[in-house]
């Protein structure tokens, strides 16, 4: 099977290092800049859940409760923008796009509508996958094999 052509993603350092990125619990049919810092005013509640500080903010009349999660070491968040007006020359699929990084971030504040943030929320749990993926894909060493068989012998 032919590998589909990879999209071009330009991750060269963006001008903006976003102080904060917010993930809201609603669909917003808007795909460009907005005056976030003028209207969206998170406030510390002084409450902590699972060791995370809970913040409070309001959007469109709803009360939101949020928590800030740092991206794991070695990972970085990017805000990508699809490049327009550049016809792709690779031709194979004809619809390969290129993206350019507009901003970067190191943590995400995700917001719940009416529920307290907790370690059980989908977003913080996403990062479990990184640990599992690492464990699954790490090459097995001779030493690992020895340990495994030693354990099996002990159990039998």
């Amino acid at each position: 099977m032919a590998t589909p052509p990879a999209a071009g993603v330009d991750l060269s350092p963006a001008a903006t290092d976003l102080g904060r990125v917010h993930l809201l619990p609603c669909g917003i049919r808007h795909n460009s800049a907005a005056a976030v810092s003028d209207y969206f005013k998170p406030r510390d509640t002084g409450v902590e859940v699972d060791g995370i500080r809970v913040e409070e903010a309001f959007f469109r009349g709803r009360k939101l409760q949020g928590a800030t999660v740092a991206l794991p070491d070695g990972y970085r968040g990017y805000v990508l923008e699809k490049k327009n007006g550049e016809k792709d020359t690779q031709g194979m699929d004809g619809d390969v796009s290129s993206f350019v990084s507009r901003a970067e971030f190191q943590n995400i504040t995700y917001w719940n509508h009416d529920t307290m943030p907790s370690a059980e929320d989908p977003l913080p749990r996403c990062f479990h996958w990184l640990t599992i993926a690492n464990a699954m894909h790490k090459p097995v060493t001779a030493e690992d094999m020895e340990n495994m068989s030693a354990m099996q012998n002990r159990n039998s």
């Binding site: 589909p4 990879a6 699929d93 796009s97 989908p122 749990r125 479990h128």
Partner: peptide
Amino acid sequence: QARKLELVRKFQ
């Protein structure tokens, strides 16, 4: 599913 993780195979 619990983590709302979708597999993204390609960008286009």
